[in-house]
Design a protein around this nucleic acid. Structure first.
Lengths: 166, 166
DNA sequence: GAGCTGGGTTGCATATGAGAACCCAGCTGG
DNA sequence: CCAGCTGGGTTCTCATATGCAACCCAGCTC
């Protein structure tokens, strides 16, 4: 059963705690089946409960929980608004932290465009709001190299690393 | 209930099908609570069932299904290997397409580093395997602009776009 | 005062996940 | 030549999450 695996297969990496990892921590916030899609729609200006529910096809109770979790995590902000001749209603928008998730969404989009688009091409194109040119995510290193589609990357323990128990 | 919402709140965007979207399609493959973590570990060289199960803390039946799905989607490859004095065993590695998911993982990591790392700093640092310098993901446009942490992006329908039914 | 609309909550059926036990093939040691 | 170990799973049961439909409520218009 290899419990503690005295000699782990990948010593440098395997010895570190899986949950103490920025990927795992971020996924704990937004890594379920719906949250990233909710964020996508919020990023695209869909702000109202019913519009989100109907555009996403998500169950309303689930949407309710997701939105509450996003507000709780301060990735989204719920605020009241009122249009004339109508009582106060509520809407959701991304917070600054939430908007910083955009690169993640764009990375998903880039991969899907390259691997899952049919023969007709990608269903949507993301463009720079200022200049109108298509955008993409690239991986670069601080030495200025661009790492390409299959970046060769190694993980090193950082200052906040924690060894695995047991 | 606003079913078809004759005038959708975000006309240009809301009229398009939510599932016909590269983000949604990619999430359909890798967007559950475990798959991206499995991919992270595969990317870091953990290749064996027991090592994955014990490092991730994932239930073995779930790991089994996730790996089968990854192999099925050709994001991972299962192959036999044998060490001397031992029968044939199996291991999993990323395929080329799977390795191209790295930018997504790095985007998650970058966000978590900035928003969820404790006072001690990030738990791990991703470095360029060739030069050792830390890497990051950036969003750029084809006109050469760098879009920063909260990229201002607009979605336009692409060649493969589909309008929403009903 | 009846009905519409936005923004939800409640209750129930089903699907997915966790956790532990079990299984099987082939090596090795006694 | 059989017991036990190891890697790589499967099977079982139980808990949680999700989907779906129905319902609720407040304020506005008619």
């Amino acid at each position: 059963m290899s419990t503690a695996s005295a000699v782990p297969a990948v010593p440098e990496y395997g010895a570190f705690d899986s949950e103490t990892c920025s990927i795992a921590r971020t996924l704990a916030l937004v890594g379920d089946r719906w949250t990233l899609l909710v964020l996508r729609d919020l990023a695209n200006g869909v702000r109202r409960f019913d519009d989100l529910a109907s555009h996403l096809g998500i169950a309303r109770n689930v949407l309710s929980k997701r939105l509450a979790a996003l507000v709780d995590a301060e990735l989204a902000v719920r605020s009241g608004y009122r249009t004339e001749g109508s009582r106060e209603r509520y809407e959701y928008r991304l917070s600054h932290a939430g908007r910083e998730l955009m690169p993640i969404l764009l990375a998903f989009m880039g991969w899907g465009d390259r691997h899952l688009a049919g023969p007709q091409g990608p269903p949507a194109v993301a463009v720079h709001a200022d200049c109108g040119a298509p955008v993409r995510t690239v991986v670069t290193c601080e030495a200025g190299h661009e790492l390409g589609d299959r970046p060769r990357v190694r993980m090193r323990p950082g200052p906040g690393s924690r060894r695995r128990q047991e």
